[in-house]
Amino acid sequence: EYDYVFDVDVTEGAPPLKLPFNLGENPYFAAQRFIDQNELSQAFLGEIVKFIDKNTDQQALAHASASTYIDPYTGAGRYTGASPSALPTQQAVPKATGGYSGSGNLDPYTRSTAAAVSSISSTGVLPLRTPLGFKQLNPAPVKAKIQDLADAQGGLSGEELSKLNSLIDQAAAAKANPALDVGLLEKLLQAWPPASRFPLLDVYRIAASLPTTSSTERVIGIALDAASWSTSWPAQPAEVKERDTNSMLALRALANLLTRKDASQQLLQIAPSLIEPLSGSHFSKLGKNGRIAFATLTMNLAVAVNEAGAAQPWATDLLRLFVEILSAEDGDSEVVYRSMMGLGTLIRSSSSVQLSVETL
């Protein structure tokens, strides 16, 4: 299901192409997917974006929210909605005949909304100036799942449960006041077994987008440790499933971390501590949504480099990471698109003078 499904007349006498679009979605991403799926000329990207903007109140859509928690194991509370496609060729005159279908814009898997890149102008896409995030959460199902898993771990005290529920409510409402105390959440992430961590990581994903009591470096370490990132990829199907889920949520948490200007600036000083574990790691083992989260994280790193203004000494390491992603990706257009957007942003940044292709 989608919020909008437009009928687009491309060729006279041919059936119209369907242009699905979700509330709050970046119109450039939707337009690019439409071009890719329908093998249209890249020259029409701007025209497609204008069509979407004209037929949807994009200023309002940027603030649209949709949230329902999906339990990655049971499927309970499953989110609706998710990936768009489509628009016109040379003689095409886009004609909107579709209507509002009621579904929210949700990112695949956890089905959380990715923030729109609102700073992209009609005169050019690159460099990106606004990072993308995964920031929607429905507190009630998360609390219920954590309660169930806590009982299996021996339970939480009344004070701990109250404190954790308060944190979840604040994170979901994007209220830090002035900083979220994530001490208990981090303690549980370190203590609970991998199979039980995913709802905690889902909360940490949202918390990472807000000021917290933990340093940027600690958030990186906690997220990667919770995903068992430094250990070999498992072979057993059940363990693969839990690792993929935890990794995807951890990568989304780190992508969200980079949506915070303060954390983004701090990360410039410690970026190698993040890029090093990502390089030559588990990208190819991840499922589609994990790879999209990985590509989004690297894209956000490129945005941070560009916004920094000054050249960054680790820019070539980030370049290597983009090359690794694009070499390993086996055809998912969203992964490729986000990686290419990040790569283009890196090349357009002040750090481009330091990029060394010879070291790749």
Rank of each mutant, 00 (worst) to 15 (best):
V182K: 08
L185W: 06
K187V: 05
A191K: 15
S162Q: 15
N165A: 08
Q190N: 13
L185Y: 00
L161K: 15
A171H: 01
I206V: 14
S162V: 13
R205C: 01
L188Y: 00
V203I: 12
G155V: 11
P178W: 05
F198H: 14
G183R: 10
L180P: 00
E159L: 12
D169L: 04
V203Q: 04
E159K: 15
L180V: 06
N177K: 13
I168S: 05
Q190A: 15
E186I: 03
E159T: 12
S209K: 13
A191C: 11
S209P: 05
L200N: 02
L184N: 09
S162L: 13
R205V: 01
L185P: 00
R197V: 00
A207R: 04
Y204R: 14
N165K: 10
A191F: 05
D202Y: 02
Q190P: 03
A207V: 12
L184P: 00
A179Q: 13
A171Q: 03
L185V: 05
L164F: 09
W192G: 12
N165V: 10
L185G: 02
S209I: 07
L156I: 03
Q170P: 00
K187C: 04
Y204F: 13
L189M: 14
A174D: 13
L167Y: 03
L164T: 10
S209H: 02
A179N: 12
E159A: 12
V182F: 02
A208E: 05
L164Y: 04
D181P: 13
A174C: 11
A173Y: 10
E186V: 09
A171S: 06
K163I: 04
K187R: 15
D202A: 13
L184H: 07
V182E: 08
S162C: 06
A173E: 14
S209C: 04
L210F: 03
W192L: 04
K175M: 01
A207M: 02
S162H: 08
V182L: 08
P199T: 07
A176M: 04
D169Y: 03
P194R: 04
Q190E: 08
P199H: 03
A172G: 07
Y204C: 05
K163V: 07
P194E: 13
D169W: 05
K163P: 00
A179S: 14
A195K: 15
A171V: 06
A191E: 14
F198D: 14
L184R: 11
Y204A: 13
F198R: 08
